[in-house]
Design a protein around this nucleic acid. Structure first.
Lengths: 251, 251
DNA sequence: CATATTCGTGCAAATTCCTGCAGGAAGCAG
DNA sequence: CTGCTTCCTGCAGGAATTTGCACGAATATG
């Protein structure tokens, strides 16, 4: 990765998140923290950002409350996203479902990872616009505006021509008995189809989705390869899922 | 391989990938890095690209800064967008090409207009996310990151199944003799294909696009149904286009 | 105050860049 | 055909840049 690209990326992330953390940046870019710190120092000298202990902040904090809220509110999802991104190996093909949690995977995708990302969500493609090496395949179809994903026969056909190594499924509810579910029948069918076309399927779930059910089941609990949850969920809430036979990963 | 071919290829790859790495280029073309570097040096002198340590970048990398892009679009593009949006009748199917000007059409689309919007640009779909009644069809395919549109065989096939009443074509340059052109061969082919699948094709053009030419022609001047330009362009600049036989609309 | 990060600097290794030069191919005049 | 010029290409080697590591200083946290 080129130095100037790296600096542009830092600025980009600064605008988006309202902050950058040196260590996280080094992890994502697979570089030493020293290099990142050097960049931050130089950019601070160019008046492009403000250097602070641990990272950097935008020079003119536009809407400081907004960026602060952004920074704290999605901490849980960010951890899930980073964990999931780490599961994707170089050269693989990953299918990303729509939703804010999966958008976080796209954001946390290491910038030097040469992978193929398939998605039926235009929102996800936006997150990958500035990824230096990832190839992005967009599945087309009739757009469901509510969740901003392509659906319908055209989408089903396009998905059938894809064979993904790993699929990150987005759901609205998870229940030990009722499995993974969502609110729309058509969407559930699409998601099920994607899972069938993928070697492995994983679900990212924040705490509030557990022990809930939505009208349309996508898959039973045992129908996925694993469930990824925040590490601070108490073990007793996870027990029913472990008993149902799904591997659980703590992020 | 001829030097000029090589340089054209470098520009092409720059447009496609948003970056060029000297070493990788030398490997791919089986040439010494010195030769590549010499090319890059010369092209930088010709203001065709920006030289950076390790390779080169496009001269004006797409400004991810939303406010900056918004500022560029400004008054002129808004007028064009509103005029074009007014040409779409209730019940019709309109195909919107990518680009900031066409995004303006999507933004200006009357909220009570029940139409079907087809596009291969995920950016455009984002503009339509909150439209109450418009049905949105997304064309999928391999994503070209620099212009954020779906391309390739899958996109071509999906387009072939669509029959649009009106197509708003985005171009980078317009010339009386060389017609409508853009910088990428693949993109030009896609745009031409969409035009063939549409009953009418219109081009929105701000002043700076007139009397310029890019490498790849999409259509000749007479190949479109009309050209929509800002009303403050002097008549003498429009005369060559009128003579070429294309109807002109002032917005 | 103690501990753990984070920071800055010096330094060495690796990579990339530039300059000058030589060999070879293409074009051209004699 | 020969000799000349011109252009392109690769190579050598020295300069410049970048990167990671080590170690002591500075800063945050409890």
């Amino acid at each position: 990765m080129l130095t100037s690209q790296r600096k542009a990326l830092i600025l980009d992330r600064l605008r988006r998140d309202g902050q950058v953390i040196a260590k996280a940046l080094a992890d994502d870019l697979s570089l030493s923290e020293d290099t990142i710190r050097r960049d931050l120092r130089e950019m601070a000298a160019e008046k492009l950002l403000k250097r602070v202990h641990g990272g950097a902040l935008p020079l003119s904090p536009d809407l400081p409350d907004f960026s602060a809220r952004q920074a704290v509110s999605s901490e849980e999802k960010r951890r899930l996203g980073a964990f999931a991104a780490g599961m994707i190996k170089s050269g693989q093909t990953a299918f990303l479902d729509g939703g804010t949690t999966n958008a976080e995977i796209a954001r946390r995708l290491p910038k030097d990872l040469a992978v193929t990302i398939v998605t039926h969500s235009p929102t996800i493609t936006g997150e990958l616009e500035h990824h230096p090496v990832a190839e992005v395949i967009l599945i087309g179809g009739k757009l469901y505006k509510h969740s901003m994903v392509a659906t319908g026969a055209a989408a089903m056909a396009a998905i059938a021509s894809i064979r993904a190594d790993i699929f990150f499924l987005g759901v609205t509810a998870i229940h030990p008995a009722h499995g993974f579910s969502t609110g729309d029948f058509e969407e559930a069918a699409i998601k099920r189809h994607i899972a069938q076309c993928s070697a492995e399927t994983y679900v990212l779930a924040t705490a509030e989705k557990l022990d809930a059910a939505s009208p349309c089941q996508i898959l039973p609990i045992k129908g996925v390869s694993g469930l990824i949850v925040p590490s601070d969920i108490p073990e007793e809430r996870l027990a029913p899922y472990r008993n149902a036979g799904v591997p659980i990963f703590l992020a």
